[in-house]
Design a protein around this nucleic acid. Sequence first.
DNA 1: CACTTGACCTGTCCGC
DNA 2: TGCGGACAGGTCAAGT
Length: 327
Amino acid sequence: MPELPEVETIRRGLHSRIIGKTISGAHNYDSPKSFPNATADITQFLQGATVTDVSRRAKVLLIELSTGYTLVTHLKMTGQIIFIAPITSRHSTDSNPVILSVSEESSSTLEDPSVKPQDDTRNVRWGGGHPSDSFMRELPDNTTREHIDFTDGSRLYFNDLRKFGWMKLYPTSEVPNIDFMKKVGPEPLLDDFTGEVLWERLQRRKNTSIKAAILDQTVLAGVGNIYADESLWGARIHPATLVKNVPKASILQLAEEIKAVMNLSIEKGGSTDKNYVNAEGKKGSYLSFARVFRREGEPCPRCGTTIVKTRVAGRGTHLCPTCQTKQ
DNA sequence: CACTTGACCTGTCCGC
DNA sequence: TGCGGACAGGTCAAGT
């Protein structure tokens, strides 16, 4: 599922590919959450618009257009953005479709069963498929929700198996007034996000579990289930510990852990971006670097205790019962 | 206001 | 083999 580092990777991939391109048309497939106020033909809202910027806030992708509108996209769990270069340049180095995000579930449908590993507590799903499977796939497929055509013949697909995601068009001036944008917390990777900031923002969530608190996008932006588990392991905090019982020193360390896992992940995403043949392949996927996430049954890399999976804040939660003790 | 739970979706996996 | 149910998780609405 796309989390902050993946959305950032997508942003970078799009930034270098679609800025300056002009939209010639668009199509809305079966996507009731997208363009709710538009007519069936969304082309009239997009045609002639040139992409002027691609940015990101939390897990939200923002494609700014010359017409004073911004395409706002949330991929939620299974969203993908797939860029396909113009047919005329298919023989160039940028010849293949670029999958900028491969969701966990839908990528599994692309897997070649013959290469599925036997040792499977980690569930190969995440990027387990060979990239060529994706490239060979016909688009649009049954997960395609939107596509946008550019005048140079390139096309952007928005695929989303579970239909949780959406793509909406807002006046650019209204974007800061979107509820989510108003409420979302600080970006963890900006310099002004510090342990002190995290500590302060956690003060209004003192009676909930630390995991629920950092998953709360109004506390800070971009932490999903994976980074929650990974960073809490890094800071040696049991995910179910109530915020008020977590020592301040641990909160300060937690902030550093969040930055670290996200930076590592973006780094890997960045390398993915370079040889974009491998969008979420085995190599470069941050899950290969995960210390606890989806590693139940494996030894803790710090102390060797078997990692367990439990449920905290309604989410599957992975932890080391020795390193992370509840307070 | 703080906090928790269910809903939104669909495909996969597991147990019967 | 088929079938039902649990599960995956980001966010919001509705509940306590």
